[in-house]
Design a protein around this nucleic acid. Structure first.
Lengths: 257, 257
DNA sequence: TTTCATTGTTGTATAATACGCAACACTATT
DNA sequence: AATAGTGTTGCGTATTATACAACAATGAAA
């Protein structure tokens, strides 16, 4: 039997409709004008509007009873702007890198113990890395993941992974925190991270950390290819490419003041 | 007996708290991480989050179950941006005009059949116009009001005021639509509107319409003074001042493209 | 000035809805 | 294969949002 639609919470829905109505009016709106929008008693509309006001989503200008949007809307928009900023700035670079290498290219941010792919461009080659069907990939055995934790020392890695075992995906996967800490050190030195058949056999990846103006790692950009097209002797060159892209993205992030 | 606090709508409040939590996280957030924030069963949190998602306030990126802010936040912020823009741009000019004239100065937008004062600076003179204790003043007998409807012809005025009587506040108040239409014509010709003791006896005001890039009237800026300090022979000069300020504000609005 | 209409706000009983619980589906780990 | 964790759905009932009435404040008309 087909499942029913997910139940909505009516009162929340009504509150959101009030927000949209007032925003669309682009003018202060009275309670009397809001009441017919919901089709319920005005005392209930008043209480909904007041709840929105208490949380700063609506406001009333001094001396007026009419409602306008409150500062919370802009505060929320600004708070969450960052990830969109990163995606916007990096989009071009992901595209350029994919075009330049012809390989599958990823942009990722860290999300707890995983790397979340927020953008990827697939290879144009007949045989290549298909791209992740998952939005999240493990940190410890992917190049973007290792780039994202490049600044972690052993202690911080222990804090992140806790008692969690590092799962072994291939014969080459790093499975201990000590090894991973060592790898982070290497990543910092090289300027880019390497996945040498650690997630998938027959696939190599390189990725570089994207740092903001304060030097903090805020994302990673990487390239994946079959081992045949990314042999060990080509790693350094590919790594330089992703590092350059990461540096440029970080520069643009800094310039956003 | 002291009235109790206005009742809040708990479900709406919970939904808004979810929005704030996700915005503050600046990262996609899982349902499992949201549940402890509200301290209710996860099925209820899921339904709240889904309601927010259905209205576009939350979103989930393809292939992910984690929530991020949805486009509705930015849509609402952008929709309502205009009035803040006007206030920001005009603030300086209101201040400058008040400093220059030493008189009470107003910035207003139209709200139905009234002019809403969204900013005012009081006179520094010992005796002057005290400023409106109301946020809204009548359109037909105030200078800012008349500036706001300067482009209205008789037909459009009839549509706006309908069968409503134009209330007579002083001996000099305009009370018929025919007279008001004539006054609008004069305002358009002069470039500014005049309240010649029509709202309050002993008070004269001049105000100019603020037009956006398309020529549409979007606000008004005005000055009020006692008749002694704004005699009839000074009206033209004062009018030129407010008109210049309005023109400058309009220019800056246009440049915001 | 008085009267009336309109609008916003508060208290409260109860009708309606949101919640908790259980079950299922899916994914990941051991 | 078994277990744990997470997201989703159905449903009975505990809780909450609503409707109604009353009051306060304001504005308009007589």
């Amino acid at each position: 039997m087909k499942p029913g639609p997910t139940q909505q919470i009516q009162s929340l829905d009504r509150g959101l409709l009030l927000l949209e109505t007032i925003a669309s009016a682009r003018r202060p709106v009275s309670l009397a004008d809001l009441t017919p929008v919901l089709g319920i008693d005005r005392s209930s509309v008043f209480r909904l509007a007041n709840t929105l006001k208490q949380r700063g989503f609506l406001a009333q200008m001094p001396g007026s009873k009419h409602y306008v949007l409150g500062s919370a809307i802009w505060r929320l928009a600004d708070l969450f702007q960052f990830d969109n900023v990163l995606l916007q700035l990096a989009q071009e670079h992901v595209n350029a890198l994919a075009a330049e290498t012809g390989e599958t290219t990823h942009l990722a941010i860290r999300e707890g113990r995983q790397a979340m792919l927020i953008e990827q461009r697939l290879t144009t080659q007949a045989v290549g890395v298909a791209g992740s069907s998952e939005s999240c990939v493990p940190l410890h055995c992917t190049s973007v993941g290792k780039a994202l934790i490049a600044d972690f020392d052993h202690e911080r890695l222990a804090g992140l992974f806790g008692g969690k075992h590092l799962s072994k995906l291939t014969k080459r996967t790093i499975t201990t925190l000590a090894e991973l800490a060592q790898e982070c050190e290497e990543t910092r030195k090289r300027g880019f991270a390497v996945d040498d058949e650690e997630q998938h056999e027959g696939v190599r990846c390189v990725a570089a950390p994207i740092r903001d103006a304060s030097g903090q790692i805020v994302g990673a950009i990487g390239v994946s290819a079959p081992t045949a097209r990314l042999p060990r002797e080509s790693i350094k060159k590919a790594g330089a490419k992703v590092a350059a892209a990461a540096l440029e993205i970080g520069r643009e992030l800094g310039n956003r003041g």
